[in-house]
Nucleic acid binder design. Structure first.
Lengths: 142, 142
DNA sequence: TATTGTTATACTCTATAACTATA
DNA sequence: TATAGTTATAGAGTATAACAATA
């Protein structure tokens, strides 16, 4: 069987637009949300690691971490083993912000799902492990 | 059965990050690519329609269309029926640019898919119609 | 009056280059 | 020398407010 990579690319494009719509007005960039999500799911990381996982430059991540730090959503912790490095931790406020954003998106998605044929629900549910496997392939922190 | 909206939100977040990675270095913003894709798939549209479909403000779309016009990727065509409005058309160069971007993303995705279990392939293939149905729900132009 | 689109202005997010401090 | 991170600078992309032209 041929892999439907081209059709899948189109679907991914659509999903990305959907994501943008679900996130409207939650007051956080995609990258900022990604960083908080990574720190929440996978624990503290270095700035360089976060820059790589979000596909942005190191200076961009420095600035983002400054903003998130000013907002009290992450904390910088000195690394005793390597004094050039810092470890970034998510704070309770950061977790709360992340939870709020997820709640909004989940509600909006549920609204959309409610108008969908049950067979589509099943197909989406069945695809979740495959999506996770795919994104795991894509990057160490995914 | 309960709808796994929360798990689906997480999956969508991952897919969005994947999309960003697949698009690296193709020299176009997500919104710009979305506009070209819409004009390619669904034909000419008004600026206001494009702004709504990409969830950006009207001035942001004016500026984006200027950039795309300067790059020769879209053309502005006066609307004789309503002289306030313009119709935006994709050009041959726009289609070529879009095709290039799709080709890069498809190649990168195929690379990732090749490392995946066949059962995941099947699940992803089976989910494509559901994804399209979902994104159709989300917006008229999807 | 309402709608289509532009102009003016300012802020966020990003990249590249040059730098400091530590390994 | 190489790596972790910052500072400086500039450009892209965005929003809100105020506007002009047409419906």
């Amino acid at each position: 069987m041929t892999l439907p990579a081209a059709e899948l690319v189109t679907a991914i494009e659509s999903v990305t637009r959907l994501m943008k719509q679900l996130s409207q007005g939650t007051g956080m960039s995609l990258t900022a949300a990604g960083v908080l999500s990574t720190l929440d799911r996978l624990g503290p990381h270095r700035l360089t690691e976060l820059a790589a996982s979000e596909n942005v430059s190191q200076p961009a991540m420095t600035q983002l971490i400054s903003r998130l730090g000013d907002a009290g959503l992450v904390e910088r912790v000195a690394d005793d083993a390597d004094r050039r490095a810092v470890q970034l931790h998510i704070t309770d406020a950061g977790r709360a912000q992340l939870a709020y954003r997820r709640r909004v998106k989940t509600e909006r998605l549920e609204e959309l799902l409610s108008g969908l044929d049950p067979k589509h629900h099943e197909a989406l549910t069945a695809a979740i492990p495959a999506i996770n496997a795919l994104t795991d392939q894509a990057g160490a922190l995914s």
